[in-house]
Write a protein that binds this DNA or RNA. Structure first.
Ligand SMILES: Nc1ccn([C@H]2C[C@H](O)[C@@H](COP(=O)(O)OP(=O)(O)OP(=O)(O)O)O2)c(=O)n1
Length: 290
DNA sequence: CATCGTCATCGAG
DNA sequence: TTACGCTCGATGACGATG
């Protein structure tokens, strides 16, 4: 005991696109671009994710489909609508494999998992590496999917580590290496720092986590609020005590839809709204929360 | 003052 | 020529309420 925790974070590689490659092995040699269509005939919408063959041309999540088409033109790219039932089933099956390998388990998104393997490792990161390799093999064996894993002394470091080398990565950050590892990373590798916060830090000349670490916590609290400020101060030091496996009941159930084109036709809008409301109600009823 | 509901903003995946 | 999704969580400001 008293060796500190060992936390593992697993992120499935280019998940939706990899799932499609598994369903359609003949696609795997080509750029695969999974899309959310608002109008499939006209090819309108955005990219949900893309495999690495497509990413090589600059295609990425959130990009408008027309831009992806330009980038991938003449490259034999395959554009597909999402098959969410498939992704849900794979996610569920993979969760079962992952959770077998550690005491505390948590699924943080459709393709991300945390595992607290402290009891199994007792501070030994070689054991942690062995567990990571076993998990990877288990997922490959049953589902043929690859993932990237990060291991560190807490969720923050494990999460950043899993993103450090991908696809197919395994990054282990020993407790005594955490600060060196973090210091040279750009600030927006810290979860919670997105576009706006990065813009703020850019303007202040704060580029790396090392720069952030030198920033006065009082300033951070004033600028981003007490909670976020405190989080940033700690995160820059690799400090994160949050436990793995705390269940949170879902609080929001929502549906939203972009119309094929802007409209003020009440009849059309009302009909769309009926569908959305019905869908929310149905999910609510299936979900134990009333 | 404390708490509540609502709205806006930011972020993740 | 133009075209840019959807779902969910967290937080803070603000006015109403008591
Ligand atoms: N803006 C986004 C980001 C992600 N996703 C979906 C598609 C992804 O496959 C899945 C997981 O998101 P990740 O951020 O983990 O991205 P990927 O797994 O696609 O890629 P990577 O290998 O870089 O993790 O969530 C989405 O619909 N829209």
């Amino acid at each position: 005991m008293d060796k500190g925790r060992v936390i593992l974070h697993l992120d499935l590689d280019y998940f939706f696109a990899q799932a499609e490659e598994r369903e359609h092995p003949e696609y795997a040699a080509r750029p695969v671009i999974v899309c959310v269509y608002t109008d499939i005939e006209r090819g309108r919408g955005v990219v949900s994710t893309a495999n690495y063959k497509a990413r090589a041309f600059g295609v990425h999540s959130g990009m408008p489909i027309f831009q992806a088409k330009k980038l991938a033109h003449g490259k034999g790219a395959i554009f597909l609508p999402g098959n969410y039932g498939l992704y849900e089933r794979l996610s569920l099956g993979i969760a079962e494999i992952v959770m077998k390998h550690g005491a505390a388990f948590e699924q943080s998104s459709i393709d991300e998992f945390f595992l607290d393997i402290s009891p199994e490792c007792n501070g030994d990161y070689e054991k942690a590496k062995g567990i990571a390799e076993k998990v990877k093999k288990g997922i490959i064996a049953k589902y043929g999917l690859t993932c990237s894993i990060g291991i560190g002394p807490n969720k923050l470091v494990a999460k950043i580590a899993s993103d450090f080398k991908k696809p197919g990565g395994l990054t282990i950050v020993l407790p005594e290496k955490v600060q060196k590892f973090l210091d040279i990373l750009p600030v927006d590798r810290i979860p919670g720092i997105g576009r706006k916060t990065k813009e703020y830090f850019d303007a202040k000349g704060i580029e790396t986590v090392g720069d952030l670490r030198k920033t006065d916590p009082t300033i951070l609290a004033e600028e981003f609020g007490k909670l976020m400020g405190g989080w940033l101060h700690n995160a820059a030091r690799g400090i994160d005590e949050s436990p793995v496996g705390v269940f949170e009941e879902q609080k929001q159930f929502s549906r939203i839809k972009t119309l094929r084109e802007p409209s003020r036709e009440l009849a059309l809008i009302a009909e769309e709204m009926r569908v959305l409301v019905k869908d929310v109600v149905a999910e609510l009823e299936n979900s134990e929360v009333v």
